[in-house]
Design a protein around this nucleic acid. Structure first.
Length: 478
RNA sequence: CGGGGCGUAGCGCAGCUUGGUAGCGCGUUUGGUUCGGGACCAAAAGGUCGUGUGUUCAAAUCACAUCGCCCCGACCA
């Protein structure tokens, strides 16, 4: 019956032959999203939104563990507030949506729909912060933002998207820098442990950094087509915003000082990263920790005496153990269900039929490698728990191996150009914008980041041959 | 914003070159047999061919315009 499967996979494009088409096919056919009547905006359907909810719960827990509190700021920002930080407004102005009318009346001052909230939040911080005793302020908000993008793709770039944005204010530069690094590490461990996506952490070039930041730190992941996806960023804003928005405090010594601020965010784009990191030609593969459904029960010959009852009993047992489990008792053939749930990326499948009930066992099949186990019913919960952990780790290791196979050190632009066709080039760079632009024009690749604690891989710039200052990753990116 | 592709039943598509009764597959509905890798038989429902204007006795088909979507590039935390 292998032939049937080949017919099935023609329903979604092959990811090696047409990766973009594969991506679109998979998210549409698994019912994660739908296009809407608004250009560039998507509907996140329940199966997709469940992934976001799992991400939110886990990140929110980690934010609170590191001392942050949630708040909510307005969607609208008056134009005069946006104008105050020069680099920031220059960076965002081209993609801002404006509200000009309330009902039929024209507004005296236009309102911007937030593309990010530094401006409105900093203006509030300037009111709330008077003394060193008010610091630090460690707030986060879960919100939607709007950026008027010209080209969009579901999850990866949409005009409206969901995210969290942390905004903190500190007494000293060192404290704010430490916060920037703390949150980068929160993101790194979340992405690697929870999403099973290996990331490369490092600093962005001046060209690529956040508009208005002193320094931007990023987490870069490699997708299966070798392109980079920026999974999240953490910004050290120095005193730029504090000066623009007049956030000052009276120090212990009685001196008026400017604050130092940070901001950090991750978005629904991570869901796109999840899909493009783990999926295969049969569809999605979710790491167990983030999977909307961790195990699906498929009753075989379910109209035979006792099969459905046993399936429901096993479901209750697994649910009671905290496993996200579903039982598919719909009127479809078993074969159809196998393919459907594989496409939807459920990490484990449990088959139970008359033969199994007789032997007091069930069949468990892994989504990632199709390995089949026969498990005695009395060991079920323990087996499933440990198998979910095994799959979680296996997916991370597979993604890491794939990335390592496609990263290499390059010493000239020809090598760099060849490498970035399907992977990351690691090279020395002089740090000058001219070389960065030249490489972009010649190869389509941009600087992704300058990683921490990497040994130099040479002494001269891959482009100009002058003295190099930093190890840098170059790649084509989303 | 540039280049390419596409809008026909819920979904995927054919039909357009050479104008003349709206087609196929999947899904859906009804009944029956099935069920361990996308089952089978029988019957049925489902369409202002993206939109507008024009050419014509006649337009899904030709022309012009327009809207939308997808991919590549440019641009972009």
């Amino acid at each position: 019956m292998a032939k049937r499967n080949e017919e099935f996979v023609t329903h979604i494009a092959s990811r090696t032959e047409d990766f973009p088409q594969w991506y679109t096919d998979v998210i549409m056919k698994t019912d994660m999203v739908d296009y809407s009547d608004v250009r560039g905006c998507m509907v996140i359907k329940p199966y997709g939104y469940a992934v976001w909810e799992n991400i939110q719960h886990e990140l929110d827990r980690r934010f609170k563990e590191t001392g942050h509190k949630n708040a909510y700021f307005p969607l609208f920002i008056p134009e005069h507030l946006l104008q105050k930080e020069k680099d920031h407004v220059e960076g965002f102005a081209p993609e801002v949506a404006w509200v000009t009318h309330g009902g039929s009346e024209e507004l005296q001052e236009r309102l911007c729909v937030r593309p990010t909230s530094e401006t409105i939040i900093c203006s509030m911080y300037s009111r709330w912060i008077q003394s060193y005793r008010d610091l630090p302020i460690l707030y986060n908000q879960w919100a939607n933002v709007v950026r008027w993008e010209k080209a969009t793709r579901p999850f990866l770039r949409t005009m409206e998207f969901l995210w969290q944005e942390g905004h903190t204010a500190h007494a000293t530069s060192a404290e704010a820098e430490a916060e920037t690094m703390t949150m980068l590490e929160v993101y790194r461990s979340f992405m690697e442990d929870f999403l099973a996506i290996p990331v490369i952490c490092g600093r962005k070039s001046d060209k690529e950094k956040f508009a208005g930041a002193v320094a931007t730190y990023t987490l870069e992941a490699m997708m299966q087509d070798g392109k980079a996806l920026q999974m999240g960023t953490s910004h050290f804003l120095g005193d730029h915003f504090a000066k623009a928005y007049d956030i000052t405090y009276l120090s212990r010594e009685g001196k008026l000082e400017y604050c130092y601020t940070t901001s950090w965010g991750v978005t629904t784009r991570m869901i796109g990263g999840l899909i493009m990191t783990h999926g295969d030609d049969r569809g999605l593969i979710f790491p167990p920790k983030v999977a909307p459904i961790q195990l699906v029960i498929l009753p075989i010959a379910m109209h035979k005496e006792g099969v459905l009852d046993k399936a429901y009993e096993l479901k209750a047992q697994l649910a009671a153990a905290g496993i996200r489990v579903e039982c598919d008792d719909s009127e479809q053939s078993a074969g159809w269900k196998f393919n459907e749930w594989e496409m939807k990326g459920v990490p484990l499948r449990l088959e139970v039929g008359p033969k199994d009930i007789e032997k007091r066992e069930v069949v468990i099949v892994r989504r990632d490698n199709h390995e089949k186990s026969f498990v005695p019913m009395e060991n079920l919960v323990d087996f499933v728990k440990s198998m979910l952990d095994t799959v979680q780790v296996a997916l991370y290791n597979r993604a890491l191996a794939l990335r390592e196979a496609r990263v290499s050190v390059v010493h000239n632009t020809d090598e760099l150009n060849a490498r970035v066709q399907d992977g990351f080039a690691k090279a020395m760079w002089c740090g000058n914008r001219e070389c960065e632009d030249k490489i972009k024009a010649a190869t389509g690749a941009t600087t992704r980041c300058m990683p921490f604690n990497h040994e130099p891989v040479g002494e001269t710039c891959v482009c100009c041959g002058k003295k190099a200052t930093a190890v840098t990753y170059f790649a084509k990116s989303y």
